[in-house]
Design a protein around this nucleic acid. Structure first.
Lengths: 108, 108
DNA sequence: CCTACTGTTCAACGAAAATCGAACACTCGC
DNA sequence: GCGAGTGTTCGATTTTCGTTGAACAGTAGG
């Protein structure tokens, strides 16, 4: 009877519908920046949420991925028990040209 | 004896010494984004701090300009009783290519 | 000198965001 | 069906950040 909370398709926001402030705020966090960078260095759909080396618990991690989804930065798909991720490189680049490349390149 | 708090040259940080996170965080605020945009549409050194149309008091404004300075986005100079501003376009662009252009162009 | 004006500093408040622990839901392999 | 593994949700706490009002410092003009 009760609505299932998990296993319902994750809500995605297309980069085209993302305000600049949302995109900047999403990237202006050390944990999320790490996620994006680590994701950029891995093949698409190869990394589940739990496979990232960040100093936060599962709850926090889930929250950060929700923010990244809402910012149009990450796409998720359910693959068995795990949720695998993909960086929306081209789509995000079309909306904010150079931004992704910038945060990936900049050393510190 | 006590150190004067005002009229001491404002502390500036060169864009080259600014971490990406600092730059992003500085731009990820509606008030500061307005300041940067309004500043970009005005000739250099033409705008004093008080001449910006933002919904915050003097204290808040002073704080936001301090953040922008620390992010290497704005340079300030004392001109009589007022403090005039300049957007560090080229210098900031050299450190973060495309970022400024991006936030200035993006409509929302 | 006294006043008006501009901007900074301080202390305090409030709101937003990150974080954590626990409970829950789902999938898969045994 | 059980149990392990994965991720989400909730509630509560903590921290961070923006905001304000008042006091202060400096400048310019009458």
């Amino acid at each position: 009877m009760s609505t299932p909370r998990h296993r319902t398709a994750p809500e995605h926001t297309h980069p085209d519908d993302v305000p600049v402030l949302t995109a900047l705020a999403a990237l202006a966090d050390p944990v999320r920046l790490t996620l994006v960078r680590e994701l950029a260095g891995s093949p698409e759909w190869s990394r589940a949420c739990g496979t990232f080396d960040v100093p936060v618990g599962k709850a926090g991690l889930s929250h950060h991925f929700a923010v990244l989804r809402a910012a149009g930065l990450v796409e998720q798909r359910d693959e068995g028990p795990r949720r695998v991720n993909r960086l929306r490189r081209t789509e995000f680049d079309a909306r904010f040209p150079g931004l992704l490349e910038l945060v990936l390149r900049a050393g510190s």
